[in-house]
Design a protein around this nucleic acid. Structure first.
Lengths: 213, 213
DNA sequence: TTGCGACTACCCGTTTACCGGTAGTGACAA
DNA sequence: TTGTCACTACCGGTAAACGGGTAGTCGCAA
């Protein structure tokens, strides 16, 4: 019984190439591929793959939000994050979203096979690049998940508008609250996410699908 | 007589996958691969490949400069730009550097085969994404209103760092220029792109792949 | 040659972001 | 009931962004 794999990446050439690489392994079957986050959800519901190899950058819906929805709706599906980036924030976001493994594109193809093997056995796996990247985090503060769950509804609303490029005064106007209150929300968001600039907030918002990129 | 190909891309997994894809074609032989620009030059001199598939983002030396040096030193070697980006500026830079073809990673694998075929016959080739991207330039060269905003190399560098969350002072330090100069670049970028906030710059940078999202 | 544009650098000023406080309300759970 | 937390609002201060000006050097093209 082959493992049925769904490839999700916005680069068609990478999908085709990776399919060629994976299908050298007779245990694997690349059942489908797509470059759109929304289509990933449709395909997962349609064909119930065993494993989804998920990129973070995708049109329609980004890989983090897509992963969150897959693991919520189809808990038996294993998602392997396959990203060009090894920043701790992405790794953390992806694993919090329910991914079973994280492999960077800078890693060897063998790493992806290890991740697929681990995921198929209900185990988690991080490629060496990823483990190196999170080491600093783990040693620093061993606190709990600091995903989007800790962001309040109002804070999320403010974050959206900040990332959209509005000033505090403009946001206050749109939300019918005082500008000082907007800044409090912004500061609380920054404290919770350990970010310190509008650029960081914007990147976080885009990563988490709060604003269109 | 097989075409001997050198793969240059900073993602090992992509190189391995692409090698697997290309070697399905019996006319092609992936003779070597590397992820470092300087090593590309060494390998080209060492093994004289017929074709180099060249990414733009690489450590050591970026793909544009590497292409420039290859075509200057070994005019018989054909360089095919294989990039994630389809911005006219990159296409123009690569073709000016002497590339024989430009294919985006969003294109189909068949596009790369067409490019290899064209390059081996001393012809140039642009994949559909790339031709679409340059059309905007050609049609709108009566210019003004919303021209594709030609961002200079230094400005692009500053934009990357701004979007990464650095302050002007930090950027000045990294680029070894005055903070005031950094702010001039920032203002010029904002004027050219009609943006007015760090959030807008960050979103633009992410949209265009200048920084990881 | 002249002119243009990119890059460099500094001046000025205003606006906004950023980082500390304090404090009242309502909802909700221990 | 008490405690916690989100949301609301304000105060003050420093740092940075934002927008305008001037000006020198350099390479490149008309």
């Amino acid at each position: 019984m082959k493992l049925r794999i769904l490839l999700a990446d916005d680069h068609q050439m990478f999908r085709e190439a990776l399919r060629s690489l994976l299908e050298k392994d007779p245990r694997l079957d690349v059942a489908a591929e797509t470059g759109d986050g929304l289509e990933v959800l449709r395909l997962v519901g349609e064909m119930s793959p065993d494993i989804v190899c998920m990129d973070i950058n995708m049109p329609g819906m980004n890989g983090i939000e897509t992963t969150r929805q897959i693991t919520a709706a189809w808990p038996s599906v294993r998602v392997i994050a396959l990203s060009a980036f090894s920043e701790p924030q992405y790794i953390q976001d992806m694993m919090n979203a329910g991914a079973a493994a994280y492999v960077t594109k800078a890693a060897a193809g063998a790493e992806l096979l290890r991740a697929i093997d681990a995921a198929s056995r209900d185990r988690t796996y991080l490629c060496p690049d990823a483990t190196d990247a999170v080491k600093g985090i783990l040693s620093g503060h061993g606190d709990e998940t600091k995903g989007p769950a800790r962001i309040g509804a109002r804070e999320r609303q403010v974050l959206q508008l900040v990332a959209a490029g509005f000033t505090s005064a403009q946001i206050a106007d749109q939300l019918h609250i005082a500008a000082s209150t907007v800044e409090v929300h912004r500061r609380n968001i920054m404290r919770k996410l350990d970010l310190h600039s509008v650029a960081g907030l914007t990147r976080y918002a885009i990563r988490n699908g709060l604003v269109p990129d």
